[in-house]
Amino acid sequence: MSRPQFVSFSHKNRQGYGLLTVEGVVDLSARHGARWPSLREVIEAGALSALAAERGSLSPDFPVEEIRFEIPIPTPEKIICVGVNFPDRNEEYKDGQAAPSNPSLFIRFPRSFTGHNEPLIRPPESPQLDYEGEIVIVIGKGGRRIPEAQALNHIAALSLSNEGTIRDWVRHAKFNVTQGKNFDRTGSIGPWLVPYTDEAQLADIRLETRVNGEVRQSDRTSRMIFPLRKIINYISTFTTLVPGDVIVSGTPTGAGARFDPPIWLKPGDVVEVEADGIGTLRNTIADEA
Rank of each mutant, 00 (worst) to 15 (best):
M1H: 15
Q5K: 14
S8Y: 03
S10M: 13
K12A: 11
Q15G: 06
G24Y: 04
G33N: 03
L39R: 01
V42W: 04
V42I: 05
V42K: 04
S49E: 13
F69N: 05
I71S: 00
I71E: 05
I73R: 03
P74N: 05
I80S: 00
V82T: 04
V82N: 05
V84R: 11
P87I: 04
D88A: 14
K94M: 12
P100G: 10
S101I: 11
S101C: 12
I107M: 13
I107K: 09
F109S: 15
P110F: 06
T114A: 03
I137W: 03
I139L: 12
G143N: 01
R144D: 07
R145T: 12
R145P: 04
P147D: 08
N153V: 11
H154A: 09
A157E: 02
L158H: 00
L160Q: 01
E163Q: 06
T165A: 06
D168L: 04
W169R: 06
R171N: 14
K174V: 13
T178Y: 13
T178K: 10
G180C: 05
T186R: 06
V194T: 12
Y196K: 06
D198L: 03
R206E: 10
L207P: 01
D219K: 01
R220D: 04
I225L: 10
R229A: 05
K230A: 08
I231S: 01
N233E: 15
S236Q: 03
T237Q: 14
T237F: 15
D245F: 09
T253E: 13
T253Y: 10
W264F: 12
L265S: 08
K266C: 09
P267A: 13
E274C: 09
T280Q: 08
I285A: 02
A289S: 15
